[in-house]
């Protein structure tokens, strides 16, 4: 239990996927313009990431390892993620129209979100057992959502600021991300390893 809480804290705050592993930077630059869409994207990623990590773990340990097909892991993982995104999209379109309205448009974007595949790969290299993998997937998504929301809040304020022309857009977002990364380094003393 203690272990799971440590994984949660360290994935959300200390080793945040976006700010220390640079995973999911593309949606981070693209979607972080508005608070509402950031929230939608963050929730969609958390949902898919938790599911994808759990299913990838099951496939890795019950199919790939016993059948000696570990070399296929990347092809299998990306297929799991792509089909999962498709299934989730069909499922919520059928059963919950308001949820589809808010999350639907972000789902296709998630397949190419490197953080999902990244979490699946980290889960294997770090030898997590099942419960750890699920918590890792969930907290990875929450960490992504947290940074996305912070960034969207800052960018919304900056809309009215007078920024030098060449820094407008991506350049400024990257520099803010750099500062955020410095700030998040302050959490590194939280868990002593």
């Amino acid at each position: 239990m203690e272990n799971l809480i440590l994984i949660f804290i360290s994935t959300v705050l200390i080793n945040n996927l976006v700010l220390t592993y640079f995973l999911g930077i593309c949606p981070f630059l693209g979607v972080s313009g508005k608070l509402e869409s950031s929230f939608g994207m963050g929730m969609a990623v958390t949902f898919v990431m938790t599911l994808a990590t759990s299913i990838s773990w099951l496939i890795y340990h019950f199919v790939l390892l016993p059948w000696n097909m570990v070399f296929l892991q990347y092809v299998i993982f990306i297929l799991v993620i792509a089909s999962l995104v498709q299934i989730v999209e069909m499922f919520i379109r059928k059963f919950s129209s308001p949820l589809y309205q808010s999350l639907g448009i972000y789902l296709p974007l998630i397949t190419t979100n490197c953080s999902i595949l990244g979490v699946a790969i980290f889960m294997v290299t770090r030898n997590y057992h099942f419960a750890e993998a699920v918590v890792f997937g969930f907290s990875g998504g929450l960490g992504f959502a947290l940074v996305l929301l912070i960034m969207a809040g800052i960018r919304q304020e900056l809309e009215y600021a007078d920024v030098p022309g060449v820094f407008k857009g991506a350049a400024l977002t990257l520099i803010i991300a750099g500062l955020l990364s410095l700030i998040f380094m302050g959490f590194s003393g939280l868990v002593s390893s």
Partner: peptide
């Protein structure tokens, strides 16, 4: 560190 990567790339894009 990761922060440096963001900062340098930000300035290069600018």
């Amino acid at each position: 560190l990761p922060a440096g990567a963001f900062l340098v790339l930000g300035f290069l894009v600018a």
